Simulated scan of single mutants.
Amino acid sequence: MTNISGDHVKVHFRINVDEDGWPPASVESLRAVDLGDGTVRLAISSSWTGGCGHSSMR
């Protein structure tokens, strides 16, 4: 997690790239709001990281 400003952060997810090089990135960074209790609320949906969406996560 990287602090952007105030309570806004970027959460970084590692992505498994297959032998053909797909998807074309090994990390996806998503904007989130740090809720201050060890959880964040994603501000946008993931393009590549399965199981992540507009919800709180630890």
Rank of each mutant, 00 (worst) to 15 (best):
I15N: 02
I4V: 13
G36E: 08
H12C: 05
R41G: 05
D20T: 09
S26L: 02
G50F: 15
S47P: 07
G36K: 02
K10Y: 07
V27I: 11
D20F: 12
T2D: 15
G6T: 07
R41H: 13
P23A: 05
A32D: 09
A43C: 14
A43V: 11
S26K: 12
S29Q: 05
D7K: 14
D34C: 06
D34V: 07
P23C: 04
V27M: 13
A25D: 08
H54N: 13
L42A: 08
S47N: 15
D20M: 06
V27L: 09
R14H: 06
M57T: 15
E19R: 10
G51P: 04
P23G: 01
P24T: 06
G38N: 03
C52H: 02
S26R: 12
G38Q: 01
H12A: 09
R14N: 03
F13N: 00
S47H: 11
H8T: 11
M57C: 13
K10R: 03
D37M: 04
I4P: 04
L30N: 00
V27E: 11
R31G: 02
P24Y: 10
M57A: 15
A25C: 13
A25R: 14
S5V: 11
D7T: 13
G53Y: 13
M1H: 14
C52D: 00
A32L: 04
V17M: 10
H8N: 11
E28W: 01
R31S: 06
S56D: 10
D37N: 11
V27A: 05
V27W: 10
S55W: 13
D37I: 06
T49Y: 05
G50A: 14
E28I: 01
G38V: 06
G21C: 07
R31T: 01
S29C: 05
H8I: 15
R14L: 09
W48G: 08
T49G: 05
D18C: 02
T39G: 07
W22M: 06
L30C: 00
V9W: 09
D34H: 01
T49M: 13
D20S: 13
P23V: 05
A43T: 09
V11T: 04
